Simulated assay, not measured.
Amino acid sequence: MGKELGKPRLLGGRYRLMSPLSRDSAGIMWRAHDLRLRRDVSIKEVQPPFRGNGADLGHARRRALREARSAGRLSHPAVISVHDLLEERGRLWIVMEMLEALTLRETVEHLGHLPIRWTAWIGFQLLAGLRHAHGAGVLHRDIHPGNILLTGERVVLSGFGIAALNGDPSVSTTIPISCSPAYVAPERLRGMPASPAADLWSFGASLYFAVEGRAPYPESDGLSALERVTGGEPDPPVRAGPLLQVLEGLLRRDPGGRVIADHAARLLSQVLRTEGVVVGPPQLPVTRLPPDAFTV
C-alpha cells in the first residue's frame, strides 16, 4: 500500500511514495519523491515469489541485491541509474532515476514496426550501454523489448533483476520463468551459461522485433523453444533492408560465430550514415536524434 491513514508512505525517512506506475511478476513500480534531494524518483517494490506455503523472502532479497549492485556499478546514459536500496517492513525497495518513457514493446505495438533509421539509432545507443556493462563485467541476461525504455532523448536498458557478474560460478544456468523465451539465446536454452554473446543474441532479437514488428520466434508458442534447440531458424526479416547484415550476424545460432559488440556497433553506424543520420564514433554515445524520432 502506498498510503497509510490517508497519508503517502515515507520510506527510509526520505522517499515519499506517490502513485503506482506499473506492476509485473517482479514487483510494483512506484512514482516517488526524494525529499532530501527534492527530485522525483521511481522505486521498485520487489515482490517475492511464492514457493511451497509462503513467500520466498530470501530469493527476493538476493534478486534485489543483484539488481541494485549490477546496475549500481554502471554509469552510462543508456543504462538505468540506481540510487539506493532499502529494506523496510519486510519488503525490499530499489530506488532508481525517474524516466518518462515508453518501452520498445509499447512503441512497436502502437506503431506496428519502426523505420530502419529509428531501429538503427535505438540499437546504436543501446549497444553503447551494453558494451559498457560488459566492460564492467556485468551480464544483463534478460534483454527484451519490455526492458528497453525510450524517452525521446535516450534509449535506456533497465530490468537488471537477473543480471550477474561475468564468470560468477554461483549464478545458476537455469533460465528464470520471468524471462521472455523468444529473446533467450539458443545456447542458453541448451543449458549453457550466460555470456556476452548470449546478451548480444537477445539484443539482436529485440532489434528484429523493432524493425519487423514481431519476435524472431513466436512469443506465444511454447514449442518454439524446442524447435530452436533442435535447429529451427527464424523467418528471414522482410523490412530490415541494410539492417539485414546486423541481424544475421547477431542471431547466429553458434555463439562463437556471432558478431562481437564492436563489429555490431560499426555496422550500425554504417547503416545510420546510409540513412543520413550523423553519429559519432561507435565507442561514444549518440547525442543527436534522427529526423522525426519517435513521432508517427
Rank of each mutant, 00 (worst) to 15 (best):
G135A: 12
Q125S: 01
R23S: 06
R228L: 06
F124S: 05
D40K: 11
R258H: 01
S195P: 14
R38F: 13
L165C: 13
E106R: 01
S180W: 05
A32I: 10
G27I: 10
E100K: 08
S22F: 02
V138W: 05
P236R: 04
V138K: 07
H76C: 05
L99Q: 03
L200D: 08
S81I: 07
R36T: 15
E227M: 13
E109H: 04
S224P: 12
R105F: 06
D221Y: 07
D34N: 12
D24P: 02
L102E: 07
L57R: 13
P234E: 01
P20F: 03
R288Y: 05
L247E: 01
E45F: 10
S22A: 07
R288G: 04
V238G: 00
A128W: 02
V296T: 11
Q47G: 13
A194G: 15
Y208M: 05
Y217G: 13
P8T: 09
E4Y: 12
Q47C: 14
R253T: 00
V278A: 14
R239D: 00
L165R: 15
D292Y: 10
G54A: 14
A60G: 07
V108G: 01
L86A: 09
E233N: 10
V259K: 02
M18E: 12
P169N: 08
G152N: 05
I122S: 09
R273H: 10
L111N: 04
A185G: 06
D235K: 10
G72N: 11
L130H: 08
G6S: 13
K3W: 14
V271G: 09
P234M: 03
P48Q: 10
R39N: 03
G135H: 11
V95T: 11
E248K: 00
S70R: 01
R188H: 06
G112W: 11
H144T: 05
L150A: 02
T274C: 06
F124T: 09
V278F: 10
G161Y: 07
A197L: 09
L127Q: 02
N166P: 08
G13M: 08
N147W: 03
S172G: 05
Y217D: 13
G204H: 10
G13N: 09
L10I: 12
L226G: 10
L10V: 14
R38S: 14
R66P: 08
T103F: 07
G146L: 06
M98D: 13
S158Q: 06
D34M: 11
A164T: 01
P255H: 00
E100L: 07
A264Q: 06
A264C: 08
L127I: 04
G213W: 11
D199W: 10
V155K: 02
R239I: 00
L11N: 03
R131C: 08
R61I: 15
E153Y: 13
H113E: 04
G249K: 02
G27W: 08
A240N: 00
V211T: 11
